[in-house]
């Protein structure tokens, strides 16, 4: 247990350490100027207009919901894939039923135009 997870944790620690060093370096070494114009968000040279905290189109939210639904169904296929040979014919029929249910949902989503971008 420790043998498998120690290198992963160590790699993570090295990654975090490196990124802290990078951020620290750029904050310390780089030159500094104080010009108010420099700290404005980039907008092709003109004065920034409006705010960025506006709601985004609901389409993006819909894609997120669909992702959760379909990705969870993909995750259900992983345990089946690992056990496919042992489950044999029974597993094959079961997974076909599962995929058919998934496809019904998929075509419903398509029919309702949730994946249409215009």
């Amino acid at each position: 247990m420790f043998e498998t997870f120690f290198p992963i944790l160590l790699l993570m620690a090295v990654g975090v350490f490196l990124s802290v060093v990078f951020i620290f370096l750029s904050a310390k070494i780089g030159r500094k100027t104080k010009l108010a114009k420099k700290f404005e968000p980039y907008e092709c040279g003109v004065e920034p207009v409006g705010t960025t905290k506006e709601p985004v189109q609901v389409k993006f939210f819909l894609v997120a919901i669909l992702f959760i639904l379909f990705d969870i169904e993909v995750i259900f296929l992983y345990p089946y894939a690992v056990m496919a040979r042992e489950l044999g014919m029974f597993g094959l029929i079961e997974i076909c039923v599962f995929v058919v249910i998934l496809l019904v949902g998929y075509f419903y989503v398509l029919g309702r135009g949730a994946l249409k971008w215009d």
């Binding site: 968000p41 980039y42 907008e43 960025t52 993006f60 997120a64 993909v74």
Partner: peptide, 20 residues
């Protein structure tokens, strides 16, 4: 920044779509 938020929203939609 507006460019950043648009890039991030697009990117998240793209990455989760291709994740499946």
């Amino acid at each position: 920044s507006k460019y950043s938020i648009m890039g991030a929203v697009r990117s998240s939609a793209q990455m989760i779509s291709y994740e499946v």
